[in-house]
Design a protein around this nucleic acid. Sequence first.
DNA 1: TGTGCAGGCTCAACCGATTGATCTTGAGGA
DNA 2: TCCTCAAGATCAATCGGTTGAGCCTGCACA
Lengths: 333, 333
Amino acid sequence: MKRARVTLADVAALAKVDRAVVSRVVNNDPALSIRPETRERVLAAVAQLGYRPNAAARSLRTARAHMFGLFLPDFANPVYAEIIKGAEAAAAGLGCVLVTGSSTGAGLGGYMDLLGQGRIDGLLLAGAEGESELIAQLDRMAVPWIMLNRRSPAVKRYVILDDERAARLAVEHLVGLGHRRIAHLAGPEGADTALRRSAGWRAAMRDAGLPDGPIVAADYTPAGGAAAMAALLAAPEPPTAVFVANVASAIGAMESVREAGLDIPRDVSMVAVHDLDLASYLAPPLTTVRMPLAELGRRGVELLGSLKPDDSVAEVLDGPIELIARRSTAPPR
Amino acid sequence: MKRARVTLADVAALAKVDRAVVSRVVNNDPALSIRPETRERVLAAVAQLGYRPNAAARSLRTARAHMFGLFLPDFANPVYAEIIKGAEAAAAGLGCVLVTGSSTGAGLGGYMDLLGQGRIDGLLLAGAEGESELIAQLDRMAVPWIMLNRRSPAVKRYVILDDERAARLAVEHLVGLGHRRIAHLAGPEGADTALRRSAGWRAAMRDAGLPDGPIVAADYTPAGGAAAMAALLAAPEPPTAVFVANVASAIGAMESVREAGLDIPRDVSMVAVHDLDLASYLAPPLTTVRMPLAELGRRGVELLGSLKPDDSVAEVLDGPIELIARRSTAPPR
DNA sequence: TGTGCAGGCTCAACCGATTGATCTTGAGGA
DNA sequence: TCCTCAAGATCAATCGGTTGAGCCTGCACA
């Protein structure tokens, strides 16, 4: 294993020019006027030595890290995988990489401690955890941040999806099939996405001239969904359809329906927010509303890259939202 | 939003000491002898100004980035989520953060280009993509690397799990239930994990005095599993049980069984490698073999942190491997 | 009174790239 | 012949921490 550690100076020596020239050639400095043959010599030296600029030195001098942070609750939730993909691609487009951190580690505070000063050019906060103390700390550290799919209480710094519309699509689908008693298996209390989806459900029910059905809150996990669904089914007059706020909960909810000896969609129709590959392989294949999650990650990075420090952002991302009808929804009996 | 940019010099000025003292206090340099009251003054100044060391400057001087890379095929596969969690926790324990990259972006080559020189102290390569060209490049860049759950062809630099044992456990479970025609829905051809799991299956069959059943290769995806399972079922004498090399494939395989009008476990028993939360919520709940995936990530980081550059590692991780019996396995009819 | 020594700090070089300022050379014009 | 100017390249300060070497001061001991 050869240990190289090639620096600007090495390249400069080989090309017989000053380090400054090499730097300017490497960075394509438009202010540089140089003879073509000199440029060739430099590029040849770069190639021959396999030179790559030292990230730390560059960051130190330019005060740009070429790195974005992405903090999320849990890698195990495939919904975040989509967001990561979009963010990663956008970052790569800007010549940057992504550092990811999750709440399953030391939490946002611990994560920021590990990062230290100036390691990232901006931070994306996906999902939960909006502790304003930490936000204040981010501001003190001069790190631009944006919340993804979650509004910040104080400052306008977020990109969200049109969850209300997603909910409407889902409910309208159920109404169109003839359902009238449509329950809502909502997200965790206080979660912003949960609120927006609930609002959409309520609005759509009203528009259809239907009374609000029962609503139960649950974590965005299979276990949470299972418990909540059991509660809904235990009611004296159970719903004929359920609008589930998240596909992870829906997976658990389906299990509860089976446990209760009922059939989807014969006894209960089910539609959930967020489309995953997995949805088509569930039993029965789950009807979902596809949301532009990758787009959300992409846009977040894009904004971090272009935003001025004190600008506020309050964007409802205008991506395709569509109902993917599968076999978990059917007319009521 | 206040923009601070507090440096060592600011702290030193406030505490009326030299920058060197502040640096040594902050880093708990044992070689420093200092009066307690001075130390107090320094710490007070640090706290008052909210000083945090600049990561770039520190990296530049010490040639340590306090950052590890983790490259994986796809964030959407929950198996990698487990590995990430373990790696993240271990990195945090070493005071480091994790940069993740995936093949869905620009690939390993592009990822390394983005990282540049000296940004990471080591790289974990999870899953596929073992192009030796890139490995050579890593060596040139003096980046220690380790493959996770995949052996490298040339150099001994890997940590793997005991996939052969996992396969044995699965097959023995099926044999114990009375199955004799046990098929294998293997991983992608050439994948190292696939080979090891196949070997385990073959060995366990032999030990049980059974002839090898049919074997079909598939991607570690639901779609791959579905296609492969369909092929197995189309055989003149279909198996009564299937050992599936990966839980993602199993999800697709289950769907194929249902499509064929058959029942799990009445007509076909199924057991898959890797336990996920999700497995208990499938229909029926899937019997799996739990592997210490988080442990794998943890150990990878640990080795990166302690390994000397040219050491070789060839470790079979000794973590708990256990069969989680659920309802997808039963005696044959 | 001088010497030795250690405790407690300070000095300053260095890591590697960037970038505004400056120098050199040769051509063209007066 | 002298001056101007621009192309083409170099100089050197700078980013913020780290760290080995060195500098004071005061005390102990002879």
